[in-house]
Amino acid sequence: MSVTSMVVLGLSIATVLLLLGAFWATLRQDRKGRDSAPPAEVAAIEPPLAAPVSVHAHAGADYTDPRTIRVGDRIEVHGSPARVLGAMHISWQGQQWVEYLLRDANRRLQWLSVEVRAGEPPHLEVQLWTDVPTEGMVPAKSMLIMEGMEFFPIDRGTVAFRSEGDTGNPDRGLLDFADYRAADGRLLSFERIQGRSWTASYAQPLPPGSIAIVRRAS
């Protein structure tokens, strides 16, 4: 074979190799482009909302407005009679609410908290608190277990209070609190009048219409 023929053959082979390389590069680029193409847009999955801890409602004409409760009133909670022995007017970081001390027909004592929560529009949060034996427990800054249930901290601080009627507390003072919530929405609160021991209670949210004022204090 002549030198000229060998050169032509070599150039032909080189051309074929270049064409194959270009084709292979194009194929890889096309596959890469398909692999890296953004996926079709889908609706964002929002995290699940926290379990409800209260019933939000306006106090309208169809329901007794619990903000009108006064010390000495006789009321009904879910149809069960109770007397309002006293009240604690509480203030914390610009928020204000009232906690009423109730004594039911079995002479059991419970606290009823009534608070207007901010929102658009504002709403009432009414909760009935039942004592929990603490057996010397103190509120932790992390998760704690009460009666086999895990509770996680949500808020803590110190509030100022003013007492009215018979509450068993000073006329004025400071109260430390630590609030917790379980996965099922149950609320647990530790409270301590400064200088005293911690107490704890569970909250039961009350829906509209749960409270009726039977007789006003004279």
Rank of each mutant, 00 (worst) to 15 (best):
T130Q: 09
E115W: 11
L128Y: 02
Q29W: 14
A82T: 00
G209Y: 00
V138S: 06
S163F: 02
P133H: 09
T199Q: 08
D179M: 12
G72T: 02
L11Y: 08
R74T: 08
H123Q: 10
R156D: 11
R186N: 06
R31W: 00
L188F: 12
M88A: 15
I69N: 03
E99L: 05
V42I: 12
A178Q: 08
W111A: 08
Y100K: 08
P208V: 01
T130I: 03
P208Y: 00
D104F: 04
S218A: 14
R196K: 12
A50G: 15
R83I: 07
Q96T: 09
G79R: 13
V53Q: 11
D166F: 04
A25C: 15
A51R: 03
A40W: 00
W24T: 14
L11R: 13
S197E: 15
R107K: 11
G168E: 05
Y202W: 10
A105R: 11
V114W: 02
G136I: 03
L128N: 04
R31H: 04
L19T: 07
Y63S: 13
Q110R: 10
K141Q: 11
D30T: 09
V214A: 07
L175I: 09
S36P: 00
T158W: 06
A37H: 02
L124H: 01
P39E: 00
S113P: 03
R196N: 13
D73G: 08
D184G: 11
L124D: 02
L49I: 15
E125L: 13
G168Q: 07
S91L: 12
R192C: 07
A50R: 15
A44C: 10
P207C: 04
E150H: 13
R172W: 14
P39A: 02
P205I: 00
T68I: 11
R103S: 13
P48Y: 10
T130W: 01
